[in-house]
Write a protein that binds this DNA or RNA. Structure first.
Lengths: 229, 229
DNA sequence: TCAAAAGTGTTGAGCGTACACCCATGC
DNA sequence: GCATGGGTGTACGCTCAACACTTTTGA
């Protein structure tokens, strides 16, 4: 079967930069390509957009197919359309970035991918195409966005300690924060619910657990509240 | 001549939301379509991406062709790829937004356009496709970005008064600002050069003119400076 | 009892905000 | 001389940044 058009058309793909945080490192999800070009190299999960599916749907489908990751925070990042970015010809890529709770996502390789793995963002292998550049753009976007929207919680377990939250910000922002000031600020926003639960299995005083109150956040936003770290 | 592919491909277009400020109104540049679909309706300038040109180049070319506007601040906005957004079939649109000094851009219609005109953003006619939505997204982006990057100057003449600058911010941010505080803040950033020139032809005390010092701005940024209004 | 991290308050400086009057100019 | 906008200073409150010690717990 084939398709004929009056004018030439580019191919359109979606690629995803999926972020996860593991203890103290920012990681992204990569696949090892099992098809040409760049067979055997690491790349971002992604693939061709089908004519009958929306862009975001395509991104979610490819992620599920190649890595098994399904529910996640997903947002469009940027569209890369340089003429020479794919050896197969003109390919325009709409990129997305995603945030997941790493512990909840054991990955498994599948379609078009020999393998899928979480890799520390500061220790990436050579990537196929211009995927390195896409990762950089995604990282910058994350750094910018995490400060004025409460998306950081997407990277933590639903119940977390204040230290975990602070560490997360330190990792993403790449600088250290003052513990007292951080707690004052975060708790002052009145977005966290103090639980009657504590850490377990630690060899020191157990920290209290909190959860992010999405509902309350939305209510506050309507009243003009602005999240900011 | 025709082009045949093994899999179906979407068409890819670029569309531009070009902003200009006229005294006290935010305007955008529209064209009246001279081709189907939506012939005779107003729409954003834009068109199909050629295989041998980058996305941004395509945006600039279409703008020049349809409206005569050439030098401008241009930045990618968002990619719209809904399945049903174009009656001709699957069309993915990479949108851009642009800022121009309105006075310097007398527009003239051309290719594919009967007419081109500046239209107040609060008084838009019905637009073709989902262009209304694109305009909304662009406006939000402008509102957000103008506060932490000095792009507002792209909308003013090279030499401007502080009142013009303040009015610009009031228009874009849709709220009024305190004159003394605004001046203190802007002048305190040390980004404006005080000229020995003044307004002319006004029936009251003539205001001093300033210009934005791009060079100085870049130097400050390297030292960690953050623009913010 | 020791190690490890949890948890907590105060102070000073700088910044944002609110606010009102005199000045220069053209007509 | 009057109308119009240009231009300026101060005081208060709040937020941010810097900083160190005590408490709790498990091993």
């Amino acid at each position: 079967m084939s398709f004929t058009y009056e004018y030439p058309r580019p191919s359109v793909t979606v690629d995803c930069v999926v972020f996860g945080v593991d203890e103290s490192t920012l990681k992204i999800l990569l696949i090892e390509r099992d098809v040409e070009p760049f067979r055997g190299q690491w790349a971002l999960p992604g693939g061709f957009v089908r004519l009958e599916e929306d862009l975001e749907a395509a991104a979610r489908r490819e992620l599920a197919e190649e890595t098994g990751v399904t529910k996640l925070y997903l947002e469009q990042l940027y569209t890369f359309g340089g003429v020479e970015r794919d050896p197969r010809g003109r390919v325009i890529t709409v990129s997305y970035y995603a945030l997941v709770r790493l512990a909840e996502h054991r990955v498994k390789a599948a379609t078009d991918a020999r393998d899928a793995a979480w890799v520390a963002i500061d220790d990436l292998p050579a990537l196929a195409f211009d995927h390195r550049r896409i990762v950089e753009v995604a990282r910058e976007r994350l750094r910018g966005k995490v400060r004025y929207e409460p998306i950081g919680f997407e990277l933590l377990p639903h119940k977390f300690t204040l230290t975990q939250l602070q560490t997360l910000y330190e990792i993403v922002l790449e600088r250290s924060l003052d513990k007292r000031n951080f707690r004052k600020k975060i708790l002052g926003m009145d977005l966290l619910v103090e639980l009657e639960e504590f850490e377990e299995g630690v060899a020191h005083r157990a920290a209290r657990l909190y959860r992010f109150d999405e509902r309350r956040y939305r209510r506050l936003v309507k009243q003009g509240f602005n999240f900011e770290v």
